[in-house]
Design a protein around this nucleic acid. Structure first.
Lengths: 246, 246
DNA sequence: ACCTGAACACCGTTCAAGT
DNA sequence: ACCTGAACACCGTTCAAGT
């Protein structure tokens, strides 16, 4: 650790170098010991030097998230939507295993980072290419929720963040920022964003309660089916980890 | 807010009063503004007075979690496992709507609180009463994950917490504390805890990878079924919010 | 113009001094 | 014995002084 700091001391600071050091620090000693001061020390730099490259700690965390989300293996082409989704989600899970702080960090950000949006957009693209309607693809993304990034259910649901505005109750689900519609076309489509020729985008958001019950009933119905069939893990649980309830 | 503090200033401090005030503070101004100092001020008390009733801030958060988990409506008897689970999970979701900080707070605790364990135990009890084997009930609890408390997938998976012990990779899934086996019999059963006559308990934990893939495939198979059937939300999406993909 | 030390406004918690 | 003010070891970030 200290030797590494010595080696790097003279190489010039950059946003990229800061983000990599921050990820390494969080991986190594836990997210709770990631402070601007500790990070600066690891980099052999005075704390204020970091602020030339990242606006504040929140932006640092956003950058760290995009670094690790970028590590998720890209989708394997030409294998059909189901194995493609499956492999990619398992790749996301492996990434989360390498960076134990990442799941909670992603969940606690109030707005999705560009890297997370790109990942989600490509997942929707896989569904659309597989023949899913935007409607079904939308609900599927909500249903997959906690699996799609290895965790985390309601990615576009802002209701969990506290309202310093003082309003009570869940706020309307904030979809993604309108200016991102061009960059993430599948997400825009899913969100029901109507891109009128001028370029302005309207995203009506979605019905959280419906999405929650859609996923809940999808699971309950699948569980009921297994229960009726007298499902036992003994017939499915194999050491190579490639089988499930199917 | 201020008047309330005035009213309560003379009533003696208690753990219960502290927890209620903490929940109110988090509900009102957000979890990030919940500090021991702010909480003490709301209670018209010096910060150190709190430490007579709660050991530290972590224990305060644990207490707050159990207060709100205690608000979840109890299961309605005699309606079958499926509607019972469904109603209870929707009740949990309503609770999370009232306390926007709670989901993330529960997820970020490293060990489940007694209240959360009691809730989960009663959910397993519903499955067992419905004729589910301990084996299937176990996998179902993992599969429901993000829904069972309105969120949060791997309740007994400690791999997301950083290891200050320096070890890399996911730790073996920590089940619940052995001494809790007596209080939460259904969870103990699920965890495969073998309670030998002396009273000592062995919980072998579970295969995280298998549980993840079980839930993933349960969802993917259900999604495939909907896709083949040409499912459309137009036929299911009704304003009264009582229908899903079934 | 750029960099950075000191300072500010906070934390959670310890500890010793006061009653 | 009990309570509590001051203090300690931290934060993220501002700001002005130094180059």
């Amino acid at each position: 650790m200290v030797e590494q700091a010595d080696v790097l001391r003279r190489t010039p600071l950059s946003r990229d170098r800061i983000l990599r050091a921050a990820v390494a620090l969080a991986d190594g000693t836990g997210i709770e010991s990631l402070s601007m001061r500790n990070l600066a020390q690891d980099l052999g730099v005075v704390p204020m030097a970091l602020y030339k490259h990242v606006a504040n700690k929140d932006e640092l965390l956003d950058g760290m998230i995009d670094v690790v989300v970028g590590e998720i293996d890209p989708p394997v082409p030409d294998t059909g939507w189901k194995p493609t989704l499956r492999l990619r989600i398992l790749a996301a899970r492996r990434m989360l295993g390498r960076h134990p702080w990442a799941a909670l960090a992603i969940e606690s950000r109030n707005t999705a980072t560009p890297g997370v949006l790109a990942y989600l957009d490509s997942m929707v693209g896989v569904l659309r290419a597989g023949g899913f309607s935007t409607d079904l693809a939308h609900h599927v993304m909500h249903a997959m929720g906690s699996r799609i990034l290895g965790f985390s259910q309601e990615l576009f649901d802002a209701s969990r963040r506290a309202g310093r505005s003082g309003a009570t109750g869940p706020e309307p689900a904030a979809t993604f920022p309108p200016e991102a519609a061009g960059r993430f076309p599948h997400l825009a489509e899913i969100a029901g964003a109507a891109s009128h020729d001028g370029g302005s985008v309207v995203a009506p958001g979605c019905d959280d309660q419906f999405e929650f019950e859609f996923a809940l009933d999808l699971l309950l119905d699948g569980i009921e089916r297994l229960h009726r069939q007298g499902w036992t893990s003994a017939r499915h649980h194999r050491p190579d980890h490639v089988v499930g309830p199917g």
